[in-house]
């Protein structure tokens, strides 16, 4: 029993908590320099966070007694507010950590690519109780006068059993929030449309992802559709001057027997010669949106925790005694 008590007081002490905080800080500092983007997935780091949570739960629990004693006795209003603030802020941090733990256990997220008109059954992307379908009506980019993007907008329709239940414009800073599922405007891309004569002699118009290959008839040369550049300027190389389609070009490369023959930039709707009497015409592009869909059952807890942390820390600081003898 004595051994247990000693163990309990070690695990629940403030000193242990501060030491854990210190270790988390040092690990994060080293990790962000050595393994940026992945250090937080290392089991040891996760364990430190979990230990901190356990320590804070026990430490705060132990302090409840002290807090109530102060709250009940007449120490003066400042001390009262300060104790309440300190308790609330620690409770807030615990809730945030628990919420984060819930996400790491049962949170889900994935990315979906949608062209205008595409539908996706969200229940096939995330394991959710309330299934619904998302349909992209339109994806567009709005521009500032200087050609820089001002907003990325995905107009979507939400359907349940074929019935429209909601219509919303998802944009950066304005996610969809539907039945516990959130969808965020994350990225976008383009399909390139190209007209050419296919190997069977037919006139064909196909849609290609950037990086895909095209095999025209009448030659053994292959075309790699490399990149769509909305505002082409040779001086900028493969970079677009702006995202606005002021001078749209397709950069492509031509290969023969796996050997690179050359690289070209074709204006939209102007035929590009691939070989003698063989042409490919890039007729346009079709933008697709990339949405991140997420379900996070821990989110409400994290939000409550964050609010408690803010409230508590303000209360504690505003009520800091100006004279030392009052400091508890």
């Amino acid at each position: 029993m004595q051994g247990f008590n000693r163990f309990y007081s070690l695990v629940s002490s403030m000193k242990t908590g501060l030491f854990l905080l210190f270790l988390i800080g040092v690990t994060a500092a080293v990790g962000s320099s050595v393994l940026p983007g992945s250090f937080y997935q290392i089991p040891v780091f996760k364990l430190l966070l979990l230990l901190l949570l356990i320590n804070m739960i026990l430490c705060t629990f132990n302090r409840i007694k002290l807090t109530f004693r102060v709250l009940l006795k007449r120490f003066g209003r400042r001390v009262w507010y300060r104790q309440l603030g300190i308790f609330t802020l620690h409770l807030g941090i615990i809730l945030v950590l628990v919420g984060g733990l819930i996400y790491s256990v049962s949170g889900q997220n994935d990315r979906i690519h949608l062209l205008a008109g595409d539908r996706v059954d969200i229940a096939k992307v995330l394991d959710i109780r309330h299934p619904f379908t998302l349909q992209l009506d339109e994806f567009r980019i709005e521009f500032n006068e200087d050609g820089s993007p001002s907003q990325y907008i995905s107009e979507v329709t939400v359907l349940e059993n074929g019935q429209v239940t909601d219509q919303i414009a998802i944009s950066v800073n304005h996610p969809l929030n539907y039945q516990g599922v959130k969808a965020y405007q994350t990225s976008f891309g383009y399909l390139v449309k190209a007209a050419y004569i296919a190997e069977n002699g037919e006139n064909k118009e196909g849609r290609f992802f950037e990086g895909e290959w095209l095999d025209p008839d009448g030659t053994n040369r292959r075309v790699r559709i490399y990149k769509y550049i909305p505002n082409f300027n040779p001086a900028y190389g493969m970079r677009s001057v702006t995202l606005r389609p002021d001078n749209p070009h397709i950069v492509f490369s031509v290969y023969e027997n796996d050997k690179l023959l050359g690289i070209g930039a074709a204006k939209l709707n102007e035929p590009a010669q691939i070989d003698e009497n063989v042409y490919v015409t890039f007729t346009g592009v079709e933008p697709y949106t990339i949405l991140e869909v997420k379900s996070d059952p821990g989110l409400p807890l994290v939000l409550i925790g964050g609010c408690a942390l803010m409230l508590g820390v303000c209360l504690a600081m505003l009520a800091t005694p100006r004279r030392k003898k009052n400091m508890v």
Binding site: N144, E145, D146, S148, P149, S150, Q151, Y152, S171, V172, N173
Partner: peptide, 9 residues
């Protein structure tokens, strides 16, 4: 320079 979309909040 105009604000980028992420900062418009």
């Amino acid at each position: 320079a105009p604000l980028m979309p992420a900062l418009k909040s």
